[in-house]
Nucleic acid binder design. Structure first.
Length: 513
RNA sequence: GCGCCUCUAGCUCAAUUUGGCAGAGCAACGGACUCUUAAUCCGCAGGUUCUGGGUUCGAGUCCCAGGGGGCGCACCA
């Protein structure tokens, strides 16, 4: 493999092997690697620790069950005590104690010399010790992997963000609840899929590389496609392609996937994040608001077993139905000030000034009104609540309101002061859509880098006829944050975006612990 | 991009009011121990105090520059 020979010296296997003796005992490595024949190719028939514990809950103190089980996991604690030893083995279900006796356990001496962090498979009778701890009385065991780096302070875990996020595998063992949070995230995503399937929605996969970035307001990442001598953009939304699926006759369609936005990092934003979008033909924004409630509450039920949860120390009850309030009423409720589109831009700007909301010069009346709402009102809404009827100029893909001129039929589900997603009566009129795109292009010329571009492909699709359709977007990361009561998006992303590391030598600080 | 904070052993943290021999617990290593629960006990080792300059008799500590990280602002409508 030629590319390996060209790899930097510190990455070459033989270099690392040669470095092992020098690194041992100096903190670089805590053990030599296991020899090839030491590690079996399989270790079948194991049972989850939690399942073994549950099955023998009624076993009395000091009693033996006469049932032999196999368990496997990582060695978290080891308490050798002469001719007997206790160990705590952890797998993804939980922990179980290994009870080892020199007289019973094969290679007893070797077992007591394992390092914390080694993977071990053990087989023996399920017993409860005299001190009441359910245990596997080990008769035979195998080393399944050696840990050459430690897993941090066994009591306090690891706190260094570099370690936690760059080496998430350490975090998952060293810090309580980390792995479980990602397992919960998986349940949430699975629940969303099955809830949508139950309503007849079809999952599709649309392109990630877009020639024209569309469907949202964001600066895109650029990717160069050599074969076409052309730049493509990583998608910022999936909206336009899903609408084309509806036009193509897929009446209920959705996609769950990553979108990319070229924005700064913050506790609430990561440049790549997971979005659910779903479109339902013959539905309006009220219908899909109900769909949104069904998905969010259903995901909570599936992941937590309840729709009532605690976030930042406060109760939040996601049980549908959620109340609805207009944008203007919401502003009035939280600030005591009435602000409406027909007041005109200059009056709205005065109100914003009084409320201490900073504005950009290029904002029109709708953008000013929206800015007032987002700065003064949204963070104060605990909810859950739907905020509805936004100005047309901030929603270029949304259908005009059926009775309120200047507004569109858009509705935002809010919980704990944050947007969880969006609901829309989709814009299906190609003439109107063209006008909206033109307005966006004008914004772009005024310096708004995030304004949308004209998308003739999409317009042609609309011209073939799109039925009345309701659409939703749901931020999966934010939903998981809400359900797990964490306040940084990094806690729900397995490998959050970090600055690239400089190359480093093995054994240097940060090479491992 | 701007501002503030931070960086000490593999991990978690100490190190007297700008300064005076860089320490502990855990892990690792060697040993003792037949019911432990972060076991306990004895012993041993472990450091480019992020990097580079500067001030000083003397810098982990003070100053400057750079780097990593965190937070806030901006951006994210």
């Amino acid at each position: 493999m030629a590319h390996l020979a060209r790899a930097p010296p510190h990455l070459r296997a033989e270099h690392r092997a040669a470095a092992v003796p020098a690194l041992l005992g100096r903190g670089g490595l805590m053990s030599a690697p296991a020899s090839a024949d030491e590690i079996p190719y399989d270790y079948r028939g194991t049972r989850p620790a939690a399942e073994v514990a549950a099955a023998h809950e009624s076993l009395g103190t000091g009693e033996e069950s006469s049932e032999v089980v196999r368990v496997a996991g990582r060695l978290m604690l080891l308490r050798p005590q002469g001719r007997l030893a206790f160990a705590t083995l952890r797998d993804w279900s939980g922990s179980i104690q290994l009870f080892c006796l020199e007289a019973v356990t094969e290679r007893f001496e070797e077992l007591t010399r394992l390092n914390l962090g080694d993977w071990v498979g053990a087989e023996g009778e399920v017993v409860r010790t005299r001190r009441g701890e359910l245990s596997v009385k080990v008769s035979s065991w195998r080393l399944l992997a050696r840990a050459q780096h430690g897993f941090g302070d066994k009591w306090r875990g690891v706190h260094d963000p570099e370690l936690r996020y760059r080496q998430r595998e350490v975090d998952m063992w060293a810090n309580e609840g980390v792995r479980d949070r990602f397992l919960l995230r998986s349940k949430v995503v699975a629940a969303l899929r099955s809830l949508l399937q139950a309503r007849g929605f079809v999952e599709v996969e649309t392109p990630m590389l877009h020639a024209v970035p569309g469907g949202g307001f964001a600066k895109p990442f650029v990717a160069h496609y050599n074969a076409m001598h052309a730049d493509f953009y990583l998608r910022i939304a999936v909206e336009l392609y899903l609408k084309r699926c509806v036009i193509g006759g897929i009446e209920r369609v959705y996609e769950i996937g990553r979108v990319f936005r070229n924005e700064g990092l913050s506790p609430k934003n990561n440049p790549e994040f997971t979005m659910l979008e779903a479109y339902q033909a013959y539905a309006d924004y009220h219908d899909v608001a109900e769909l949104q409630e069904y998905l969010i509450s259903g995901a909570a039920e599936a992941a937590l077993g309840t729709t009532r949860l605690t976030f930042e120390g406060r109760e939040l009850d996601l049980t549908p139905p959620w109340p609805k309030i207009t944008l203007e009423d919401a502003i009035e409720q939280s600030t005591g000030v009435r602000a409406t589109l027909d007041m005109g831009e200059s009056e709205l700007r005065r109100i914003a000034g009084r409320l201490g909301v900073e504005l950009q010069d290029r904002f029109d009346a709708g953008q000013v009104l929206t800015e007032i709402y987002e700065k003064t009102t949204e963070p104060t809404l605990w909810g859950p609540v739907h905020v509805m009827d936004y100005p047309e100029s901030v929603s270029p893909l949304t259908r005009k309101h059926r009775s309120k001129p200047g507004y569109v039929e858009r509705l935002t589900p809010i919980a704990a002061g944050r947007e969880l997603g969006e609901c829309y009566s989709e814009l299906v009129d190609p003439l109107d859509q063209r006008a909206r795109f033109e307005a966006q292009v004008a914004d772009r010329l005024k310096g708004d880098e995030e304004a949308m571009e004209m998308d003739e492909d999409f317009l042609r699709a609309l011209e073939r006829g799109m039925p009345p359709t309701g659409g939703i977007g749901l931020g999966v990361d934010r939903l998981v944050m809400l359900l797990t009561d964490v306040h940084h998006i990094r806690e729900v992303l397995l490998f959050p975006t970090l600055r690239p590391e400089a190359a480093r030598e093995p054994g240097s600080p940060g090479d491992g612990i």
